[in-house]
């Protein structure tokens, strides 16, 4: 296990890199996902169709292919960017579909009487969604969003396999493939790194679920 302690700095940098990528993706995917969820419950048929098609396509497509399309498809039509940008964008587009479904189910969990009351006092669709339903949906939506976030953190490892440097997974590549360090400790270190993020996140999620059950 000397490899891990000798390269603690490298692992720490990787951990930070992963957190940085995940932070960016979390914010962007949350915004895009909420937007899409709004589309999916809207009274305007074309918008609903956009939401449905987006979710169906993206959820059924492997993240790897989404990433390849971004990094090697977009440049074909003259859209260029840094590799990390494409990676973050691809992961965002992918995650947003799952955020959308989580938010939609959250909207569904709000008591129907709430929306009815909002309409009764004359609020429009967007007002009742913004002022009455979504704030309440927020609580119901937190646990499924938490699961999406954890899945997203794990998916970010694919970016590393894809060639985006500076995150946790790429540390294994540097140490094992490029420097020839033994595989077992190198990969164990990476696994520990992910567990450092995932396990507290999972516990947080569990606590949220418990509290939610209690308030109901």
């Amino acid at each position: 296990m000397g490899v891990i302690t000798d390269n603690l700095g490298l692992y720490a940098d990787g951990l930070l890199g992963t957190l940085e990528i995940c932070g960016l993706v979390a914010v962007a995917a949350l915004l895009l996902g909420i937007f899409l969820a709004g589309f999916r419950v809207s009274p305007v048929p074309p918008l609903r169709a956009v939401g449905t098609v987006y979710v169906t396509l993206v959820r059924n497509c492997p993240l790897t292919i989404v990433l390849f399309v971004f990094a090697f498809g977009l440049p074909e039509v003259g859209i260029n960017g840094a590799y990390i940008t494409f990676g973050v964008a691809g992961l965002t587009v992918y995650t947003a579909a799952f955020v959308c479904e989580a938010v939609r189910s959250g909207i569904g969990a709000v008591d129907a009487g709430q929306a009815e009351a909002a309409r009764a006092i004359g609020l429009t669709f967007s007002q009742s969604l913004r002022l009455v339903v979504l704030p309440q949906a927020l609580w119901a939506v937190l646990p499924p969003l938490g699961s999406v976030a954890i899945a997203m953190i794990k998916n970010s490892a694919i970016l590393g396999a894809f060639g985006v440097g500076g995150e946790l997974y790429s540390v294994a590549n540097t140490l094992n493939s490029a420097r020839g360090e033994p595989a077992l400790p190198v990969y164990t270190g990476v696994v520990i790194g992910y567990l450092i993020i995932i396990i507290p996140a999972g516990l947080l999620l569990l606590m949220m679920e418990k509290r939610l059950k209690a308030t109901r």
């Binding site: 090697f72 440049p75 074909e76 003259g78 260029n80 840094a82 590799y83 060639g163 440097g165």
Partner: peptide, 18 residues
Amino acid sequence: IVLFDVYSKCADALRTGQ
């Protein structure tokens, strides 16, 4: 310096100006 796992990706990146 941009590093990929295979050279074909480098060629793609050069072609597209990345």
